[in-house]
């Protein structure tokens, strides 16, 4: 079964950037999927069971924390590696992220090379 990455962000330019950064993985058989809000994200997670999720924290209605918590604790999908993306200066959220069960915390603006390297690391490719 192919490896799957889910990108979740309510801002289109960030979705584009994240997609673009991870694009070369598509040639290696990885599927890139996108969700534009928390509800879509939860649905996609349940359906796709992605290996890796890049999850923006600041989203209207359902925040990244909520999605993370529900995925890990309610749905019990502990195999889904969740990376929370937050704006710089909001590092106090780090603690909340840990409580929500996130696997990693990254600040925006993100370094594309580091992000790609992390993805390869998590996916084992």
């Amino acid at each position: 079964m192919s490896l799957k990455i889910l990108i979740v962000d309510d801002e289109v330019h960030l979705r584009t950037l994240l997609h673009q950064t991870l694009e070369e993985l598509e040639d290696e058989g990885v599927e890139l999927h996108v969700a534009t809000n928390g509800e879509e994200a939860l649905a996609a997670i349940q359906t796709l069971q992605p290996n890796l999720v890049f999850l923006d924290v600041m989203m209207p209605k359902l925040s990244g924390f909520d999605v993370c918590e529900r995925t890990k604790k309610v749905l019990g999908l502990s195999n889904v590696y969740i990376v929370l993306l937050t704006a710089k200066g909001q590092e106090f959220d780090r603690q909340r992220g840990i409580e929500a069960g996130a696997d990693l915390y990254m600040t925006k603006p993100f370094d594309p090379d580091s992000l790609l390297m992390k993805a390869r690391d998590v996916l084992g490719i």
């Binding site: 330019h13 950037l17 997609h19 673009q20 950064t21 694009e23 993100f110 594309p112």
Partner: peptide, 20 residues
């Protein structure tokens, strides 16, 4: 679309660089 995406990423890298 891909070309645009690539361009956007490059610009993003530049901005990141200047920032860091």
């Amino acid at each position: 679309r891909k070309a645009l995406g690539s361009e956007v990423l490059h610009l993003y890298r530049e901005v990141n660089l200047i920032y860091s």
